[in-house]
């Protein structure tokens, strides 16, 4: 049984339809990547799961419930964490305040969870009281992931976490995503850095112009001549 099952999803912005009949599923603990050219609608898939786009049809089932139409705070409650691509921290809040906001829907800040996140991202413990806006891009990305992990989501959605990172940090970012996945959290990843993402993931989707084009294991997609030629630069 899939944890997340998106079927025949149509969505867009205003009158502009971006997604046309997208199907996608993520099993419990699975690591799934969406790749594709610019403007293919990769980020739109994630936004649509969170109800941030214009819904035009189809279904989004998470953990056996249809979550289309849920308010974002209810979607979080069902166990989905989301790290958008840009502006994913509160710049004038300190690191610890950003993490506290991640646990807003709980009555109290879960201290054990906070400790786990500080273990995983020691830099966040070091910079505990620093304003998020003054940190480097890589550190902000870790903070954004930490914030989304505060509620121990069953599924973590990451929108281009390696975008804008220095090349030596990209590898580190992928390692951390592996660690999160190894702990049992299912990961849905959208990436420009398609080769690295497909190498790391269990399964991948290639999205083109708002439609599913290919779907296979990451290694199989990497080995596919057509995919290599069209989407991975040979």
């Amino acid at each position: 049984m899939a944890l997340l099952e998106v079927s025949d999803l149509d969505a867009g912005y205003g009158d502009l339809q971006i997604l046309e009949g997208v199907d996608l599923d993520v099993a419990d603990g699975e690591y799934v990547t969406i790749v594709g050219p610019n403007g293919a609608g990769k980020s739109t898939v994630m936004k649509s799961i969170f109800g941030l786009t214009e819904y035009m049809g189809g279904s989004i089932v998470f953990d056996d419930s249809e979550i289309h139409g849920y308010r974002p705070e209810d979607i979080i409650q069902t166990g989905v964490g989301y790290v958008p691509q840009n502006d994913n921290v509160f710049p004038s809040l300190s690191v610890i305040e950003n993490l506290e906001m991640g646990a807003y829907i709980l009555d109290e800040v879960p201290e054990d969870r906070l400790a786990t996140i500080f273990d995983r991202f020691p830099i966040l413990a070091e910079r505990r009281d620093q304003k998020a806006g003054t940190m480097s891009g890589g550190q902000q990305q870790m903070l954004a992931m930490g914030r989304a992990l505060m509620l121990e989501p069953d599924l973590l959605m990451l929108d281009e976490p390696s975008a804008g990172l220095a090349p030596d940090l990209v590898e580190d970012m992928f390692d951390r995503i592996d660690e999160i996945n190894d702990d049992g959290t299912a990961v849905l990843l959208v990436e420009q850095n398609a080769k690295e993402a497909l190498r790391r993931c269990d399964r991948g989707y290639v999205l083109v112009q708002g439609k599913n084009r290919y779907e296979d294991s990451g290694d199989a997609l990497l080995a596919d001549d057509q995919v290599r030629q069209d989407f991975l630069g040979g």
Partner: peptide, 14 residues
Amino acid sequence: RAMSDNKDLALITG
């Protein structure tokens, strides 16, 4: 303060 920083992010943070 979070909402004044970024309303959309506040929304998806719950």
